[in-house]
Simulated assay, not measured.
Amino acid sequence: MTDTRPDSVPPRRKGRKTLILAAMAVLVVAGAAGVYGIAGLQRNAGDPTCRPAVALAQQLKPLARGEVAAVTVAAEPLKLPDLAFEDGTGQPKKLSDFRGRTVLVNLWATWCVPCRKEMPALDNLQAKLGSPQFEVVAINIDTRDPAKPKKFLEDEKLTKLSFFSDASARVFQELKGVGRALGMPTSVLVDGEGCEIATIAGPAEWDSADALALVKGALAR
């Protein structure tokens, strides 16, 4: 018996309608994938604010030699997370507080032997080049005894460095999240916009002629 109801659809027409709806769904999915793909490419392109930092890094590449040969200069724009920590009085600080200045962000801990060995060189770097244009921002990430790192600096007579700390060690996780902290110590040279200029995993002789030339080169440009 033939179905004469007004809303009935012959089997062939129903199948064609299903194909059309399926094709439309594919187009919608493909369009969404395209949008997300473009967004992903835009994210991967990096922050345009940091392109000058990459240009500077490439100019400094010949200076990454000798005692700072392990330094990797920035090849793509990277704006660092706005790292949050505390100063020596317990007041909150952020990396953005140093905007307009070139800084060497260093993560260290008293349980890290290479870190302890590196600290005198960082103190000397601050003594030689510290200015309104440049500062060594050495952030301690000891998570247990807050008095221990301060005592270490006092015992070693490291008086030029300002004391900064993050007892949660979140700064390490944030730098790790952008691929800039694989171990300790870690140092990142950052421009006045908060953009990476260069990074080194491990210690360096920061008061050596090679290191001074690298930092001076960043400041001169």
Rank of each mutant, 00 (worst) to 15 (best):
A109P: 13
D155K: 03
V178Q: 11
E118Y: 11
P52N: 10
G31V: 00
R101I: 04
D210R: 01
N44M: 09
A209V: 03
L104A: 09
E154T: 08
T18N: 03
V188M: 14
M24Q: 02
A213W: 01
P149T: 12
A32D: 00
K157L: 04
M24P: 01
L158S: 03
R221S: 12
L122M: 14
V137A: 05
V103Y: 09
A169E: 05
T4W: 06
Q91T: 08
P114Y: 12
M184S: 06
F98N: 10
G15W: 01
P52E: 13
M184C: 12
T110G: 12
T4E: 15
P149K: 12
E154S: 03
D3E: 06
F85K: 05
K150L: 10
V136Y: 14
F98A: 14
E193D: 15
K61P: 01
T72G: 00
R99C: 11
F172S: 13
V215M: 11
E86W: 06
N124A: 15
G37R: 00
V105G: 04
A169N: 10
G100N: 06
R43W: 09
I141F: 11
V71R: 02
L189Q: 02
P11C: 04
R116N: 13
K117C: 07
F164Y: 15
A22F: 08
L161T: 11
F163D: 04
V215A: 08
G40F: 00
L83F: 08
T199L: 13
S187D: 05
G202E: 12
K150I: 09
E196R: 02
P81F: 05
D207I: 02
D82A: 01
D47R: 13
A74H: 01
A201H: 05
V9F: 13
D47Q: 14
A75K: 00
A121N: 13
A22K: 02
V190N: 09
D47L: 15
S96P: 03
P10H: 09
C115E: 14
